[in-house]
Computed example of a mutant assay.
Amino acid sequence: MKKLKEGQLNNFLILLLLISTIFLFTFSIKNNNNNKYYEYSQKNYKVFTFAIPDTVYFAGQLIDLTNPFIRERVESEIYSIAYFHSQFIKTVKQTERYMPYIEQELKNKAMPSDLKYIAIIESNLMPTTSPAGAKGIWQFMKGTATKYGLEVTDDVDERLNFEKSTIAALSYLHDLYNMFGDWLLTIAAYNAGENYIKNKITQQYTNNFWDLVMNAETARYISRAIATKLIYQSLKTYGFYIPVLELYPPYKYKEIAIDTSIKDLPLFAKQMNVSYYNFKKLNPWLISDKLSNAGNKKYIIRIPVDTVFKITNKLNNDTIKLIERI
């Protein structure tokens, strides 16, 4: 019995020694791999600063970026935008769905094309809702939205209708420009409200935007717009090599006119033989599961078209065309 116990003890010691050897060997390999990883990352990972120009025109106004007080404000926004890679890439991919329409409307109204960047800094081209209750790509508050002809009810919120809200936003900007006669003050007023900007001008004895002390959000707003233009006008300069084929194409749809109520939108989508999710994606302004229309108002509803519609990274040749500017 004693010999058996001694044998068991010997076996246990041998097993323990074997486990310890395996553990030390495994740890040594893992530690070696970790060292290689950190050596590789230290050798290859780099963070760059950018060559900021001395001047830039924004909405027709010359911005002196050699002025340190202005340069630091703009440069700070450049790094905030350029190094938020995930958000930036998602926004760039959305531009093909929205920017052509905005650019055309600005051209039609003879307004500066740089105003298109307001939509990007407001919402990153996503029809979101802010904590303050502003909605849509142009982030309209309800009062301003209704003032400029957008319908906001329990069933309909046209702040989420891209085309209608774009027309309203440009009309609002046009009116603000007539009020201030300066595009920087106009854009600041779009963010903070015209009364706020008027009061700051009166209280601080200047109508130069860069000299005004304002709330943090509005103070950053113009700098962020300028930074957005600089990056979007020269994507590769700021490290973004994005293939044109990766832009999200506009959705395909047909339009139908509706002048009656729809009691059940999911059922309506089913009867139209389309996905309810896709239906709502194309009509985000329909904010409930019904459409009340006692006044027989005509609404234009988009129906997704059931055709081949695919996004692919496959190329027909070896040439990859990159997005140069937006």
Rank of each mutant, 00 (worst) to 15 (best):
S165M: 06
S223A: 12
L170D: 02
I258M: 03
L235Q: 09
F27Y: 10
E151C: 05
K310F: 12
K30L: 12
L230Y: 08
F268E: 02
R73Q: 13
R325V: 07
Y251T: 11
K314Q: 14
K2N: 13
P250N: 05
Q271N: 13
L230M: 10
R159C: 04
Y251Q: 14
Y83C: 01
V308M: 03
A82C: 12
A119C: 08
N11K: 15
N191Y: 09
S20I: 14
L160E: 02
N191H: 15
F23E: 07
L176C: 05
S275G: 04
T312I: 06
A227N: 02
D259S: 08
N195A: 06
E77M: 11
P284A: 11
M99F: 15
I63L: 10
I78V: 14
K2Q: 14
F27G: 01
P243F: 01
K254F: 01
F240P: 04
T228A: 10
E72M: 08
T312Y: 07
F209Y: 15
T26G: 09
D175A: 07
A82H: 06
I102Y: 05
L62C: 09
V156Y: 00
S165F: 04
I120H: 06
V152C: 10
F240Y: 15
N44M: 03
I301V: 13
Q61W: 00
I14G: 06
D175Q: 10
